[in-house]
Design a binder for these strands. Structure first.
Lengths: 199, 199
DNA sequence: AGCTAATATGGACACTGTCCATATTGGGTG
DNA sequence: CACCCAATATGGACAGTGTCCATATTAGCT
């Protein structure tokens, strides 16, 4: 506590907050232990107390990102299956295009603590949410024996398409555009096109 | 020329080849200018003659990767639209799972020379190939005015799904699996599921 | 043969992450 | 209250990195 913040105090918090700031403004390459310390006015070795290795810091940042992302999905309950799916997709699109650097960072476990239980937990919760909306949407349609797929395949297909499109956009391989035939932005168009498989 | 290879000679080639080797075996993080030089037995500063900045080296490696990838698509001409699409998907799947490190590297222009014309050219050729197979596959089906999308949306949707699925697999977010209902590996299942939108 | 331009060398600088011994401090116990 | 211990912060060290520089070597062309 006391006036002068982190000569002693909440350095861990300060590190994470400033890391998020840097991630958003300059991207992952700006996340250096020494730089963080320098810009917070502490010794270059101070962060090591809270995060022994750089990967620990990065993992903690990624966890924060995922927690933030999860809030974008606030309970689409009550709606129809397709409405919930649209809400999930919009949540993902919105987050990715508002915080591009975060999105690129959090899904790329390069320098992250390998299979972090926290991260896997959040991923599985997101996946479960998607699966719930999907099976609601698939329920009660006429079965076509030649084209029957497990719900998991639907979920993975949709998840993959959204993720792939976002990354291609963020990496500059696709450009923003419209589907004039459907009268929709491209990201909405490919979602509606995909929803076609559900009925 | 002469016996002792690259004291003078084809250093550029040697750099690229060894970089590819390292990329495949240890991943992108192993691609360091000094390390390359050291393991080729030249001075740490020798590569700078051929690649002034590290990004130039990385870009050249990425170009090689894309050229290799393009060979996987050897002319699926003559087949039907869907057959060509399956061939393209299999080519991408095969390359990605045979050379995971390459795939992750080449599509992530982090330290690459930003909008490299060579890379963009190859990307556009791949995209054109996909578009050709797709419009062949879409031609002559009954039009449904409520569900009409531009060919570009189809192409981007498929491209995105394949790319997204591959990355999720490579990053450990998805695991390999089967769709027991369809009796297919997951990557084949989501492809067949997607092809559903074409008819 | 000689010269120029291409290429290789080794030193320097400013970074980085990680380890270490040392100092300071705060909170709980006697 | 005094004390001690564990948590935390410090600064130095080491090996590694990319980039720039002045210097040396060499290859190919006139």
């Amino acid at each position: 506590m006391s006036s002068k913040a982190y000569h002693h105090g909440e350095l861990r918090q300060a590190l994470l907050e400033h890391a998020m700031r840097l991630l958003d403004t300059e991207g992952e390459t700006a996340l250096g232990v020494r730089r963080l310390a320098r810009e917070l006015g502490v010794a270059h070795s101070a962060p090591a107390n809270h995060f022994p290795r750089k990967s620990d810091l990065l993992t903690a940042v990624a966890v924060r990102c995922f927690e933030d992302l999860e809030k974008s999905f606030e309970s689409g309950s009550g709606k129809s299956g397709q409405q919930r799916l649209r809400k999930i997709a919009d949540g993902l699109y919105g987050y990715a295009f508002r915080f591009p650097q975060r999105y690129r960072f959090m899904f790329r476990p390069e320098g992250l603590r390998n299979p972090d239980p926290l991260l896997r937990g959040i991923m599985e919760r997101l996946y479960a949410e998607l699966g719930a909306a999907l099976s609601m949407s698939l329920k009660g349609r006429q079965p076509d024996p030649e084209r029957t797929f497990a719900v998991d395949s639907y979920a993975i297909s949709l998840w993959s398409m959204l993720h792939g499109y976002i990354l291609m956009r963020l990496d500059g391989n696709f450009e923003a555009g419209r589907d004039e035939l459907a009268g929709l932005d491209r990201e909405q168009a490919i979602l509606e096109l995909w929803l076609t498989t559900c009925d």
